[in-house]
Structures are given as structure tokens and as C-alpha cells.
Design a binder for these strands. Structure first.
Lengths: 132, 132
DNA sequence: CCGCGTAACGAGAATGATTGTCAAAAGCGC
DNA sequence: GCGCTTTTGACAATCATTCTCGTTACGCGG
């Protein structure tokens, strides 16, 4: 019921999604990834892609971003906590670490008595290549 | 066509939305605000609420937040640039200023050659009242 | 004060990503 | 190999937001 059993199974579809995320670069929407899998010949349902991505996100194995555009974007990222510097023209992404920010956020939250703190931070700009 | 004329008109509906935002506290969704206006007896269309909110957001008079939940939340905030510390249980919000973060973000972006930099930052936690 | 041109309004339909449903198929332990 | 349980997947449902387009009314010049 809630313990002892194999709570997570190893399925072909799950592997396919993981493998794909390991290969592609940059952020992609769920529908994007679904289309790529289909092109590869993998038969995976859209519903399953969504479910798998949510699972991976919960497990902390991938990062989720919600750009102003509206769709969720997923990406396989390096292990530690970090943030993203995204070009708003071409989408090029740079991972940046900001220990100062982490500390500051925790401190500010603590000052107000908030616990169980998390935060989201995205930086948008125009990269050198896209600058006219 | 594009100049000299009154590009923006002063309508009853626009005033109503502004007035409502001036009174309420915390973040509210567009549909939320629309319902409140209706309760007040103001006859304003949902479409107009969306349009007005977008306009105010573009003008920088209100802040927009995109919580994991999925809907856009709007709030009348203090003038300067700042961020939000939000309780994920009761929604209580604290405005916080983070000069360090601003500087850091600009510097990091500049190091990578990115220009025209902006950023979004939200801090989530559980406020003292909601802590078990 | 009156009338006109144009921006804003509003009701409903359209859009489109995400989530729910439920019968069928496939893992994993035995 | 067998059976129970999880997972899958096609399709429908949901729901916030956007679009359309005829109607309304603001603001200004006359």
C-alpha cells in the first residue's frame, strides 16, 4: 500500500524520456519533447510525457521554468542548486550559481519568521550574438 | 495615428479596477478581481479586466506573479523595484528589497555579455502563523 | 453645447496547454 | 509462468487567457 513495495517501476517510456533529456540541450516544452520522441520512433503518449516530467521534477532531477510565454519548460541540469541566465531572443541559457542570493533569501525569510524556504530566480537578457 | 492624440482614455471601468487594486491587499487573480467588481455592483467585463491589468502591468503600476498554481496574480505594489516573500499556505506577502541581488544579477549578466537585463525573483516559505 | 472619430468595452467563441478518466498492457516478486 | 499492481495512453474535460467584432462612450474641435 504505502511501503515495502516497488513504488517506482522501470519502464521503457520512462527511460526514453530520461535518455532524451540527457541528450538535448536547453529548455524544451513537454509537447516539444513528445514530438522529439515520436520522431525518434519511440511510441510514448503525451500524457505519459507530462507524468514523467512531473515525476522527475519532483525528484529534483530536472528543472522547470515558467517563462512569460505561458508553457512550462523542462531541462536536465547540473546537480546543485543554481539559476539561469536566458537570452530572450535566441533562448541560449547559461547556468549561474549565486551563493550570495541563496544566503540572502534564507536570511530575509528567517527575519520574517518564514520557514521551509525556497525561491525561484531567472535572469533575462539579450546575449552578445543577438545584440544588434 | 500614432501621435498627438489621446492615446489613453479615462473610463469608468479603468478607474474601478485601479480603485479596487488600491484597496485590496495581497495578490489576486484576474478572475478574482472581476468577481469582486461584480460584487461591488460595478459592471465590468472580464475581458476588460484582463486588458486593464495588462496595461497597468506594462506601465509598471502593478506587479505580476506566476505561482506554480498556474494563474497570474496581480497586485498594486510600492513604486520601486522589489521582490516578494510569499507564504505558501495562507498567501501572506511581504515586500522585500534586495539591492545585493540586483547588483549581482546585473554583474553576472554583464560578465556573459548579456545586455538589457531584467530578472524575476520570488521567495516562498511558510509563515509563522501557518507553522504547525 | 453638439457631433464625430476613435479608442475602449463586452459577450461569446476560440485557443491551447495541462489534467482527469478508465480500460488495457506490462513489470516485478514469488 | 502467474497474478497483483502500477503504468500507460487515447480521448474528453477543464480552465485561464486571448480573439473577434459589433456597440458604446470619451474627448476634442467646431
Amino acid at each position: 500500500m504505502s511501503e515495502s513495495g516497488a513504488a517506482v517501476r522501470n519502464t521503457r517510456q520512462r527511460s526514453a524520456v530520461s535518455a532524451l533529456l540527457a541528450e538535448v540541450e536547453g529548455f524544451h516544452s513537454a509537447q516539444d519533447l513528445h514530438a522529439m520522441l515520436r520522431d525518434r520512433g519511440e511510441r510514448v503518449g503525451l500524457t505519459t510525457v507530462y507524468r514523467t516530467l512531473q515525476g522527475l521534477a519532483d525528484a529534483g532531477e530536472i528543472d522547470v521554468m515558467r517563462p512569460p510565454g505561458g508553457e512550462h519548460l523542462y531541462r536536465r541540469c547540473s546537480e546543485g542548486h543554481h539559476h539561469h541566465l536566458v537570452c530572450r531572443a535566441c533562448g541560449r541559457t547559461v547556468e549561474v550559481a549565486g551563493p550570495t542570493v541563496e544566503t540572502w533569501a534564507d536570511r530575509v525569510a528567517a527575519q520574517h519568521g518564514y520557514t521551509d524556504v525556497s525561491h525561484t530566480l531567472e535572469i533575462f537578457g539579450t546575449c552578445p550574438t543577438c545584440t544588434p
